[in-house]
Nucleic acid binder design. Structure first.
Length: 872
RNA sequence: GCCAGUGUGGUGGAAUUGGUAGACACACGGGAUUCAAAAUCCCGCGCCCUUAAAAGCGUGUCGGUUCGAGUCCGACCACUGGUACCA
């Protein structure tokens, strides 16, 4: 270590984090402090962090996430609750396959090594975790129950197989994840990625769309932004399915459907667009080589929504026309690359006058644009589509109708002629759970020789993933292993399904399994699951706001309907923490940016403390700041938590992480901030050791306290009040820490001689230690004993506010003139408004501003502000 | 593109319900202690004018509501997360 200590301090008075932390951790381990069992007589609190993917070692995001969780868990424990704080591993996934190819090892080996290392790191950070409940999702004893549950869903008809699109790498002959497609090319092969249609398994989440939407209203302790995102994602809309007849029959096709939420614009339809894979489009293409070529070219695109929405929209006239269901007019039918066959009916109606994307498409291909809605401010459609709702024009008998009436009348007319009906639609699509990958839970299905599928019988579960394999990056070892695929059922040959589950399956129910992970006879033990669930506080990254949280909510409802749990929702209170950022630095070399780790950058500041020069300490090269960005490999700006733990100890890392910013915001890493946190812990250590030297036996007698002593007592209890609110309700640990720092800064203002002063100081210090305990538990564990307390701080309750200590006799009131601060006065608490008014008007500086002006009115906010409003 | 956020001193951030903008820290400057340094302690620290006090300006930009706006409303700019196969 590079830090010095006061020379006059004896050995045990030095703050040595290594000794203090090892001692505390050994104590918790030997006492089994954090192992819990369900006790129906005690109030429970289930505190859960999103479990980590075992990628190798902990990163700062993990440290932040698990520190927040641990602080809340320890705080709730001090409230006397039975706190469950478990941990496990989200162990299946793509990175293990990539690492396996790179290192020529099996994904299982890599994963288990990572788990062992990361577990040791979590222990060294002093998190109060009940490790007896630990599991990894790649354990057959875990995914067995997931497979069992899937077969239940299969029996209930909630599971089905259908064709859907994937990114296909034609060189590696493999399916690519969206993140493996870079600029339209496969990341490994560099081949142009194509869209391919394959058969996949789906779970009917859309059957639960209404529940998932409506139950959001019951989640009072979820951030509003997350609920809004989920509502928009589910995207419930009421519209009309409209049938367009073809003017001529194409093979067996006489018509097709489109869905619209704007039937009021139906008279403005000037063309219709089919997906390139629409059966009618494919049929027309057999006789139209030009169209066939267009459709073929459209294959070279990706499946991601962002890509679909931003790519150039291309289309082609099929030459076929459809009949407008209201007017009987002929409407041209186009094929477009921006309509996907997977979603909805694979066809859309285009109203370029009132939809911006249609407008741009119509301009590009010189298609007619019609205005059928009148603008409120009289605007036309010369430069852009008019998307607001309004009164219908150019719509024949519908002219003059507003949106609601037009919707009703037009839908009735369509219904009468059997050309449409009102329909509720969701943006949400069914959950595709098939992955054409190896490192996942095998989907428990037998494919029958004569076609069709059945669920693997319960007595044959789990379908075990072979782990002794080699990966080459081309084909999944599961698909390649012919003997694994073979199976026999009732004397018939059947084949195991070779697709594995989406890893969101495992992360959708792990929180429930933690309540009873030792039960190998059933998926969940109802007694324990219903005692602990729902999770009282769930904590994880905002990046999971939609997918993970929606799938987990869905799974919970599925488990409820299977009779496994009683609650409707899995997570009562949700906290989404922000990302961890750090400064990045680079220099230019041969036109390329070479990124240098922040640990190698030396900052030179001017006399105002502003950075004026950055030097690479290894090469002496001058560096440029690349800004503060998310810690990443590509910018070489990651900070390894282990290095900081080794240098300063876990308490310093925990303190800095909690102090740097409130949990929901992004957190910026700063080496100076870390050493500041360490400095504070040394100060805390010294304050306690100075106090015990004062050797005082007196207890506080409130009747004999002087003003100074009363002030410190009030500060102590104000701080307890604030910190309790910050921990329990607001989850703002940064302001809680700041409040304790303020309290400690007040202590030196009280003398060290009078016994009552020493007692009041002692009260402030003891409470500060208790309040800091959830954040920096190792040092508090030690200092609590140093203060002479006989029992461990783990057994002590959270401090209580003495309301009498909070009473004040006077308060400072700000005087404003026309909203600007012009002075301050001290008034006794309970003064009447007239007294306050006259005192305010007499204030010398205020007089300067109101002299010769007419006072129009005076606004009084009790104990805070007097605002004198004068004419200008 | 679409959905959801964020923007405050040199820096991280505070201001919880529309009521003193900058708490608490970091950095920096000055001082004490020291043979010297580290560590520690004390003082100062939004900008501008100034010996000082007072005034003026100031929460991404422009506009609005209000006695009073960082906070509410409208428009815009920049950045971030998600966008269904990264987890």
């Amino acid at each position: 270590m590079t830090h010095g200590y006061s020379i006059d301090m004896s050995t045990d008075e030095k703050y040595n984090p290594k000794i203090v932390e090892e001692e505390a951790q050994a104590f918790w381990e030997s006492e089994q402090t954090f192992s819990v069992t369900h006790q129906s007589d005690k109030e429970k609190f289930y505190c859960l962090a999103m479990f980590p993917y075992p990628s190798g070692k902990l990163h700062m995001g993990h440290v932040r996430n698990y520190t927040i969780t641990d602080v809340i868990a320890r705080y709730q424990r001090m409230q006397g609750k039975n706190v469950l704080h478990p941990m496990g591993w989200d162990a299946f996934g793509l990175p293990a396959e990539n690492a396996a190819i790179e290192n020529h090892t099996a994904p299982a080996k890599w994963t288990h090594e990572n788990i062992a290392y990361m577990k040791s790191q979590l222990k060294s950070l002093g998190f109060g975790i009940d490790w007896s409940r630990e599991f990894a999702t790649c354990d057959p004893s875990y995914y067995k129950w997931e497979q069992w549950f899937f077969t239940k869903l299969f029996d209930k008809g909630l599971v089905y197989k259908k064709t859907s699109s994937v990114n296909w790498d034609p060189i590696d002959e493999t399916v690519l994840a969206n993140e493996q497609v870079i600029d339209g090319k496969g990341w490994r092969s560099g081949a142009n990625v194509e869209i391919k249609e394959i058969d996949q398994w789906f779970i009917r989440i859309t059957d639960y769309a209404d529940q998932l939407l409506n139950d959001l209203d019951d989640l009072e302790q979820w951030p509003e932004q997350v609920k809004t995102m989920q509502r928009n994602w589910i995207g419930k809309s009421v519209g009309i399915n409209i049938i367009f007849d073809l003017s001529q029959t194409i093979r067996e096709f006489t018509h097709f459907d489109v869905y619209t939420t704007r039937p009021d614009t139906l008279m403005g339809v000037t063309y219709l667009t089919l997906a390139t894979q629409h059966p009618i489009a494919l049929e027309i293409a057999t006789l139209n080589p030009e169209l066939a070529e267009f459709i073929d070219n459209c294959k070279s695109q990706q499946v991601s929504e962002a890509e679909m929405a931003t790519m150039e929209k291309l289309g082609m006239d099929t030459g076929v026309v459809a009949i407008h269901p209201l007017t009987g007019d002929k409407v041209p039918v186009w094929v477009g690359n921006y309509v996907l066959m997977d979603y909805g009916s694979g066809a859309v109606m285009a109203v370029p006058g009132h939809d911006q994307r249609d407008y741009e498409f119509a301009k590009k291909y010189s298609l007619p644009i019609m205005q059928v809605i009148q603008s409120l401010n009289g605007g036309g459609i010369e430069t852009a589509a008019l998307t607001e709702k309004g009164v219908l024009i150019n719509s024949g008998k519908y002219n003059g109708l507003d949106f609601d009436t037009a919707f009703k009348v037009i839908s009735e007319d369509l219904k009468r002629s059997n050309h449409g009906s009102v329909a509720t639609n969701y943006r949400l699509r069914d959950w595709g759970v098939s992955r054409q990958r190896y490192w996942g839970a095998p989907i428990p299905i037998y494919n029958l020789a004569e076609g069709g599928e059945i669920a693997v019988p319960i007595d044959r579960l789990p379908v075990i993933l072979p782990t002794n394999i080699k990966m080459d990056g081309v084909q999944s070892p599961l698909k390649a292993d012919k003997s694994w695929r073979k199976a026999e059922l009732n004397g018939q040959f059947v084949e195991h399904e070779t697709d594995t589950f989406d890893t969101f399956m495992e992360s959708s129910w792990y929180y429930a399994r933690f309540t009873c992970s030792d039960d190998h006879t059933q998926m969940l033990d109802p007694e324990r699951a219903n005692y602990w669930l729902p999770v009282d506080q769930y904590i994880g990254g905002i990046e999971h706001a939609i997918l993970h949280l929606l799938y987990a909510r869905f799974f919970h409802k599925l488990m409820r309907d299977e009779g496994l749990v009683k609650s409707n929702e899995p997570f009562k209170k949700l906290l989404c923490q922000g990302m961890v950022l750090s400064e990045s630095y680079y220099y230019q070399s041969e036109g390329k940016k070479i990124w240098v780790s922040p640990s190698k950058a030396e900052l030179h500041r001017d006399k105002y403390g502003k950075v004026e020069k950055i030097i690479d300490i290894e090469t002496g090269v001058e560096l440029t700041s690349g800004g503060i960005t998310k810690m990443s490999k590509s910018k070489n700006n990651g900070v390894d938590p282990q290095l900081i733990i080794d240098k300063y100890g876990s308490d310093t890392v925990r303190l800095f992480t909690m102090f740097a910013s409130p949990p929901e915001q992004t957190m910026e890493w700063s080496d100076e901030g870390v050493s500041g946190a360490f400095k504070f812990l040394k100060k805390l250590w010294r304050i306690v050791h100075d106090q015990i030297k004062l050797s005082n036996e007196d207890v506080i007698d409130v009747s004999i306290l002087n003003d100074q002593q009363k002030y410190l007592r009030r500060k102590t209890h104000e701080t307890i009040k604030k910190v309790s609110d910050d921990f329990g309700r607001r989850n703002t640990f940064n302001t809680a820490i700041a409040a304790v720092m303020e309290l400690l800064n007040e202590i030196p203002k009280v003398d060290t001689i009078s016994p009552q002063s020493i007692a009041v100081r002692g009260e402030a210090i003891s409470n500060a230690i208790l309040m800091l305990n959830p954040i920096v538990p190792h040092i508090c564990n030690k200092l609590w004993l140093t203060l002479g307390n006989p029992t461990s701080i783990c057994e002590i309750d959270w401090p209580k506010v003495d309301e009498l200590a909070l009473l004040k006799t006077s308060s400072i009131i700000v005087i404003q003139v026309n909203g600007k601060v012009r002075g301050k006065i001290e008034v006794s608490v309970g003064s009447n408004d007239d007294t306050v008014k006259s005192q305010a008007l007499e204030h010398e500086n205020v007089q300067k501003f109101i002299a010769g002006k007419k006072v129009k009115k005076i606004i009084i906010i009790p104990n805070k502000i007097v605002n004198i409003v004068i004419s200008k």
